[in-house]
């Protein structure tokens, strides 16, 4: 079985919107995968199924051998500890400093204080924010906040990092920095990265595997793919 396996998944929201129809997908360990598609195409739903924010109505989802669909509510945290999540809106705790934000997950896992410090500083160094560990999120730029979010996602050295439009709120230069950080993590930590985006430039530049999705249907899956015209047309139509 592959690292991530999605089999015959259907997801229809209560308001009748089909977010995923007969989705089939497998992702290998250590892969870097883009998921592209227009707004409301089902990208986010697909990602949310990986960390069980959403459950499919039908079908199976496996992440690292765990049957995510059958996971009980009270056990979800065990899955989430193996997944780092990077959000478009960062989701940092505004009243905690950078250090506290990154240390937060480890503290709630009950790790030793010295281990926490070591891991947090390592993660902050990886994203290049070691000297700003005392700042509060509102004192940082958007790019820096996103890097804090990435540091928090990787502090536990997760096997999977899920990024939901991490560059959606950032300018092109900052986006490039963020992508460099993510690529670095992909090669150094060997974490699998699944990233949803509609940033054409990034996808075309990096030449990674690209899965495109539209109206809940996976329409193409290409190694070294591009944000092709075909998809563009779909977006426009």
């Amino acid at each position: 079985m592959e690292f991530i396996e999605i089999k015959n998944c259907y997801k229809v929201y209560k308001n009748g919107v089909t977010a995923l129809a007969d989705g089939n997908l497998s992702i290998e360990k250590g892969e870097f995968v883009f998921i592209i598609g227009p707004t409301a195409s089902g990208k986010s739903t697909l990602l949310k199924m990986l960390y069980r924010e959403e459950k499919p109505n039908k079908g199976e989802v496996y992440v690292g051998g765990i049957n995510v669909v059958k996971l009980r509510n009270s056990r979800v945290y065990k899955l989430r500890r193996k997944i780092g999540i990077v959000f478009q809106d960062f989701k940092l705790l505004p009243k905690l400093t950078v250090y506290e934000n990154v240390a937060y997950p480890l503290e709630t896992y009950g790790l030793k204080g010295s281990d926490i410090k070591k891991n947090v500083l390592k993660a902050l160094e990886r994203v290049g924010l070691k000297d700003k560990y005392r700042s509060y999120p509102h004192e940082l730029s958007g790019g820096e906040q996103q890097r804090v979010c990435i540091a928090r996602a990787i502090v536990n050295e997760p096997m999977l990092i899920v990024c939901d439009e991490p560059t959606g709120n950032l300018d092109p230069d900052t986006s490039k920095e963020i992508m460099d950080v993510l690529l670095n993590i992909n090669t150094e930590l060997k974490s699998t990265i699944v990233m949803a985006t509609h940033d054409k430039e990034i996808v075309n530049r990096l030449k990674k595997r690209v899965i495109s999705i539209k109206d809940g249907i996976i329409i193409s899956d290409k190694k070294k793919g591009k944000y092709e015209n075909e998809v563009d047309k779909n977006i426009e139509s």
Binding site: Y77, K82, I85, L92, L93, P105, T108, Y109
Partner: peptide, 17 residues
Amino acid sequence: RNEINIMRLVGTSNTVI
């Protein structure tokens, strides 16, 4: 609730929350 949501997303068990 935002705080609680973030706790959940980073893998904090319900008891610890």
